[in-house]
Nucleic acid binder design. Sequence first.
DNA 1: CTCACCCATGGAAGCGCTTCCACCGCAATA
DNA 2: TATTGCGGTGGAAGCGCTTCCATGGGTGAG
Lengths: 302, 302
Amino acid sequence: MVTGQGPASARARDRVAAAVAELGYVPDAAARALASRSGTRLAIAVIGHTAAVLDDPYVGRVLTTAAHIAAEREVGVSLHWLSLSAPVTLAGLADSRSLGGLVVVNPTRPALETVPRALRGRVAAIGVGARHVPSFDVDNRSGTDGVVRHLVNSGRRRIAMVTGPSWLPCGDRAVDAYHQVMQEIGGETRVVPGDFTAARGAMAAAELMARWPDTDAVFALSDLTALGVLDGLHALGVQVPANVAVAGFDDIAFACLSRPALTTSTHPVEEIAAAAATAVLDRCDADRATFFPSRLVVRESA
Amino acid sequence: MVTGQGPASARARDRVAAAVAELGYVPDAAARALASRSGTRLAIAVIGHTAAVLDDPYVGRVLTTAAHIAAEREVGVSLHWLSLSAPVTLAGLADSRSLGGLVVVNPTRPALETVPRALRGRVAAIGVGARHVPSFDVDNRSGTDGVVRHLVNSGRRRIAMVTGPSWLPCGDRAVDAYHQVMQEIGGETRVVPGDFTAARGAMAAAELMARWPDTDAVFALSDLTALGVLDGLHALGVQVPANVAVAGFDDIAFACLSRPALTTSTHPVEEIAAAAATAVLDRCDADRATFFPSRLVVRESA
DNA sequence: CTCACCCATGGAAGCGCTTCCACCGCAATA
DNA sequence: TATTGCGGTGGAAGCGCTTCCATGGGTGAG
């Protein structure tokens, strides 16, 4: 055994290490996975309609973190796009044999129900509280609450919200929080469905202003979408923040580059991703959801 | 052999297929890789100082394409960050046994020289012309030429350039093209090194305006950097494009979302990535560089 | 000094697949 | 009808590793 696991004298261990170094020996991962019936690879699976979800800044940060951890532990990373069009199932996930752990980003509940037995205790989710799988997410509820209250505190009352995709259950808490604040101030709720893309944000802005022309603030559950809203509002000739305030969610790198700079809520994405990756790699099968705090970042747009 | 490769009667083939479908049999990739001494996995290796290179929009598009192709061919994708701090070498690339092909993004020349023998004919590069490996890149020369000439045509003469990182050889052609145009119009060359990040772009803007206050246009070899330049100029109170025109390179999704919208050059990144992935997966060992055209996109910033 | 016990060591088995080869039965030819 | 040839088929070997077990040498206690 080259892993250094088994019983062996210190002298023997040293001799092996020396030989390994001299010969440049690298153990064959395929053979190892085959013999030990389990590998070490860290798999990141992202669920979405198109493979373009991998181009999302949020996903980029998750991948960056995963690559970092993988480099430290000297394990590989594999990347999977799970199409939403086909029935999403983790069951047939490529090469589950050589897999050390699986992190699913933005999972649907059905997808999480089909975790292969072989992967028990080695799967974690980023983005939803699923049963039988530890999950890690930002606290959408208090995050949303913080942003919407900031809007209220700056004098806005007719606040609209652009949500995430309907298949993503983690957005529900955010919508709840929005509803709650609106109820408190006795304001009408104005919800338009989004999908976390900028293009949808621009469309949502037009939709919103057509339906409720007196809207004075828009909160989007994704910075990408908020940037799209900014763009759509600009096309409509609406001044931000003079006429309408805009706030996003995520604090992606571009949030501070837009004009006006985007007011948003910042998330510890790296921490979340690291927690998920560490959990699966360490076979921690805690069956619960962990929420990370989100913090309001006030810039120019609201 | 379950691959359907070997000789077999149509009847036998059908019976096997039926059994496979009924039992839900999935061949074990590890065992297959071990026995056949070569796998099918598509590996994407990105070179950079930090793992954050994976968060770059350009890399995101490459990953999206790779995931798409992998899904079609039913092969896996693995993701690797090759640190520039450590001597970059492909030699010890994790699990080269089960690898079908390797695409290296933004490679340095030394990194490409150490391709393991086992990978001969299964490696391609995105971003540089390297010997012994087919490489795919945008035509930096004509792309740069197009952007800089557009700047000249709009009346700018004191044009500065923010380059890419010095370790990336593919930027040389771009700098050459810039020099050539400046020489033609008899203008002074003003070059500031960049690193493809927005933060560096903002710094470069300050540096540039301090050193050459009469600069009337800035061309950055990356949209991310150009967005940073926009930000830096804004902080300096410089009007864009009234006082200084800004142009980028890449046409990332955010380019049309910035205010003013970024003039840039659009690249067929998906095509490039698909060509590279297909080349390695099909074992095409053409030893040459292919350049894809870049097309000027005029927006508001220049 | 002897016995019991423990641990280090080497060897064998086998993970699930591919590759190779020997075999057998068929059809075509003499 | 006997012979050659070809293609389909089943079986054996082995990919490089881990896991398990039997063996043997060492140590401590009686």
